[in-house]
């Protein structure tokens, strides 16, 4: 236990951080550097830079493409609730990165909704998992990696809930661990009581973070580069109006 705990708390986080940051930057750098000389916007939507920005953001924030008429609104609901919940849960966890002193008002304010999101998120997760099993066509296109990432996130959620409601670690100790890591200082395990529930949760989160740069989860960054959405207009010599003779 001692060795494992030491690894999860004092070694793995640095590896995770490097893999995550370098990995994500590398993936984005690749997309950034690829040339894209041919404008290929899919109309309608973007005749100006402004409207292209609006279109990308509406896809990022509201998942507009799924929401539109004859899109896939059930999938939209599942996916949107999942992503929003995930975001809220992340925001809630900010408190562990802040000092023992006062937590800013807005971080305190998202605690309630963050916890609600943690309770809710399993539902869309199970839906996203089940639709891959139930629908023959979605089952056909699914790869093991698709199930893996859903199960991984589900295990992160469940271990988090377990640590929150069943086997609570001492919150001051959790903060101490995170703050030590941020200060690049080793955590003295003899001075804190970290239970297994916390260690499992912390471990799974790190696995997820390291997995991201190698996986489809990168869609989060990729959407900002998608030429059919980011390109605007194209064919500047095109005219809809004749010049007056």
């Amino acid at each position: 236990m001692g060795v494992m705990a030491n690894f999860v708390v004092n070694v793995l986080p640095y590896i995770t951080f490097i893999v995550f940051v370098v990995g994500v930057i590398y993936r984005i750098a690749v997309w950034w550097s690829r040339p894209s000389p041919i404008p290929i916007p899919v109309f309608p939507g973007q005749r100006t830079v402004g409207s292209a920005i609006v279109r990308v953001l509406s896809d990022v924030i509201f998942f507009r493409s799924l929401l539109q008429f004859r899109g896939n609104r059930i999938l939209w609901l599942g996916a949107w609730v999942f992503h929003i919940s995930f975001g809220l849960i992340l925001l809630r966890h900010l408190r562990y990165f802040l000092g023992a002193e006062a937590v800013p008002g807005w971080v305190a304010a998202v605690q309630g909704i963050g916890i609600a999101a943690a309770l809710v998120i399993s539902i869309p997760l199970l839906y996203l998992l089940l639709r891959r099993i139930v629908h023959a066509d979605i089952k056909w296109i699914s790869t093991p990696a698709d199930y893996f990432v859903l199960l991984l996130i589900l295990s992160v959620v469940l271990s988090g809930l377990y640590a929150k409601y069943v086997a609570r670690p001492f919150v001051v100790d959790v903060k101490y661990v995170i703050r030590s890591l941020m200060a690049l200082k080793p955590v003295d395990l003899s001075t804190v009581t970290l239970n297994t529930a916390f260690l499992v949760h912390f471990f799974l989160v790190q696995v997820l973070a390291m997995y991201i740069p190698f996986s489809k989860v990168m869609h989060l960054g990729g959407i900002f580069f998608s030429p059919t959405r980011t390109h605007h207009f194209g064919g500047e010599a095109h005219t809809k109006q004749l010049e007056e003779a």
């Binding site: 999938l75 066509d137 698709d146 489809k216």
Partner: peptide
């Protein structure tokens, strides 16, 4: 080709196989 075309590189990478396109 994947080095010449951003679209190709990106569309090889970011699909999550959600299946919204299927039907």
């Amino acid at each position: 080709l994947r080095k010449e075309r951003k679209s190709l590189q990106l569309y090889l990478d970011i699909c999550v196989r959600c299946g919204a396109c299927v039907k």
